[in-house]
Design a protein around this nucleic acid. Structure first.
Lengths: 350, 350
DNA sequence: AGACATTTGGAAACCGGTGTCAGAATACGC
DNA sequence: GCGTATTCTGACACCGGTTTCCAAATGTCT
């Protein structure tokens, strides 16, 4: 019963082809093709007639046939080597939002940066699937060879990252340095003078940017940053614990710690609890990313929120934006608000 | 320099086509096609000769052309409406593991169960993309109409779930009921007699199964389960907090709480902290899923681990297993170990 | 030796679109 | 009114496989 309205006038038999449309509209299939592909050299009246038939028939071009003829699939690849599930899923969400209502689908491709075959694997992937384009997620997005590869095989790409690594057409960047600077200034404003840093892995641009922001703030406040107050982690909870314990052994002990992401910040809080160090009374902690864990541990973490979903959406839109075609040019959500989320993990030093 | 070894003897010019293979192997393209599609009526010697040429040439059939001719894409869809990032990503990982080395790719499709258009959207998706098959993730996998739809449009499917919802060919199930029973028995074994339950959303099979397991354990121990000791959440941290507060108001207060997933269990621990209830001294907590948050909060959660990744892998293998073809029949990892992970959130009642 | 089964090849159609290019239709200049 | 420039449109080959239908070659069985 309720099924009757599902396929507008299609009769639920065989899917209509371009030939059906052509016949009913009294034009050649080539002309129908022109309508579909928004060819400019086309009589407006003819276009309308064809579009009417398309609508009535509920015709949708076959993606497989188009892929073959155009030598290009209507697929957007998502290439990542990010271990943080929440981050990856948020980015997937953003991309899917951008793709919604278009003919594009998203195919996901995790890669192993440590594998010698990584580039070859990706090359095979891109060439075989003839992807329309790919979104590169951090941190693998920082790999210039990967971007060069995309260029070489003729696959559009957009990189997401913590700083401008490429020209504007190929890049959607946050401004980690500035954000971390502000977060650190907040700690300083609370009265902290001895602040420890847990930075991200060597070679990661995000790690570098965040460290620079941290240093900026300290320098601006005229504070020194002893080498010993910097520990390194690899963005995981466990390394956060280890790094925190290293900082806890310092004397005098820092009264606050900025961890380069929430996972590590959670590790700091965990380690503090193990050592009987009260947060925030004896130790303030700030994280970065505002992933769910930040709000779910005790005390909830003060952290830096940045617009993961909208950035991913913007990235995908860069890829398909012009192809999507007029109708749903979607009044760009613009937003992109970054902010310091103040929770209970920070207090003035005693 | 290092590039020389990338494409085995392909010469980095144009990709070889089926015609190239046919010419070099001295057979017709029809025969090559037979080799590719593993036709049984084919002389073994001929097959080897063709396979040799294929290997030397590094020939790979064009997926777009195949998709068009076969009216079927080499894509596996992942349909989900799961809000838990870690769970979804683990399942993606499992599917990708199963797909690795095959010609299949994974395309992700989140759906909105509350939308009236959900089924129509999925139908359009399946029919347009002509997916080879789909994996349905819980909880949307419990939707029988969705499975029926897959059947109707001729798309293979495998459902993942907490109980046997379908015949073995279409189902990969865990045994939540038994697992929860064991977890609850552990609490009882620790001496708890007044145990609260935070169950999952109404209508979710997983919620029902876990509740049944909980009841099984209590009944087996001759314990009563007052209605008031059951609170409901929707698997989120926030509802866990709310439900926990409801249970905290009971008197006598339960000495232990089983939460139907880790998110809610984390909410319980958080709420306890807010109310000054010590975990595990005054309250023991057990969760379910063993997601990262379980190990990252304080105290770390005792929880039930089940093999998310391998189940997803098994699901995908059910779809592509027979098509993949002999060579990499992969000695099934079999594993699938479920277990109670004992951490600090449980102690005997005072 | 003749009948029959098993393999392989060939030609052509087909899957459902798109590119090329020539020809038709209309507009413009004189 | 006519040649020509400009706009539209259609015929046809093509993307790279699969499939159908037959026929031919080889081998096997009575």
């Amino acid at each position: 019963m309720t099924r009757s309205a599902q396929a507008p006038a299609a009769g639920r038999t065989a899917k209509p082809t371009i030939n059906d449309v052509a016949r009913l509209a009294n034009v050649s299939k080539k002309t129908v093709s022109r309508v579909i592909n928004r060819s400019p050299l086309l009589n407006a009246e003819t276009r309308e007639r064809v579009e009417k038939v398309i609508r009535e028939l509920g015709y949708v071009p076959n993606p497989q046939a188009r892929a073959l003829a155009l030598r290009r699939n209507f697929l957007i690849g998502l290439i990542h080597d990010n271990p943080n599930a929440q981050m990856v899923l948020n980015m997937q969400q953003g991309i899917l939002e951008a793709l919604h209502g278009t003919d594009f689908e998203m195919v996901v491709r995790p890669v192993d940066r440590s594998s010698a075959m990584m580039l070859d694997d990706v090359r095979t992937f891109l060439e075989r699937q003839r992807l329309f384009g790919v979104v590169l997620l951090p941190p693998i997005s920082e790999n210039d060879a990967l971007a060069a590869l995309c260029e070489e095989v003729g696959c559009r790409y957009v990189r997401m990252g913590s700083a401008q690594l490429d020209d504007a057409d190929h890049m959607v960047a946050s401004n980690d340095r500035e954000l971390v600077k502000e977060a650190t200034e907040f700690l300083i404003g609370q009265g902290h003078r001895l602040i420890g840093l847990i930075e991200g892995p060597d070679g990661f641009r995000s790690a570098q940017e965040r460290r620079l922001g941290f240093e900026d703030a300290l320098a601006a406040a005229g504070l020194s940053l002893p080498r010993s107050h910097i520990a390194r982690g690899n963005y995981t909870f466990e390394t956060g614990v280890t790094a925190a314990n290293r900082l806890f052994d310092l004397s005098p002990r820092p009264t606050a710690i900025f961890a380069s992401n929430d996972e590590m910040a959670a590790g700091v809080v965990f380690a503090a609890r193990e050592r009987g160090i009260a947060v925030p009374e004896e130790l303030s902690v700030i994280g970065f990313d505002d992933t769910p864990i930040a709000a779910h541990i005790w005390p909830p973490l003060t952290t830096v929120r940045w617009p993961i979903v909208s950035m991913a959406r913007a990235a995908a839109r860069k890829l398909v934006g012009d192809v999507v075609g007029g109708e749903a040019a979607a009044p760009q959500p613009s937003e992109l608000p970054s902010m310091l989320v103040r929770r209970a993990s920070v207090a003035p030093p005693r």
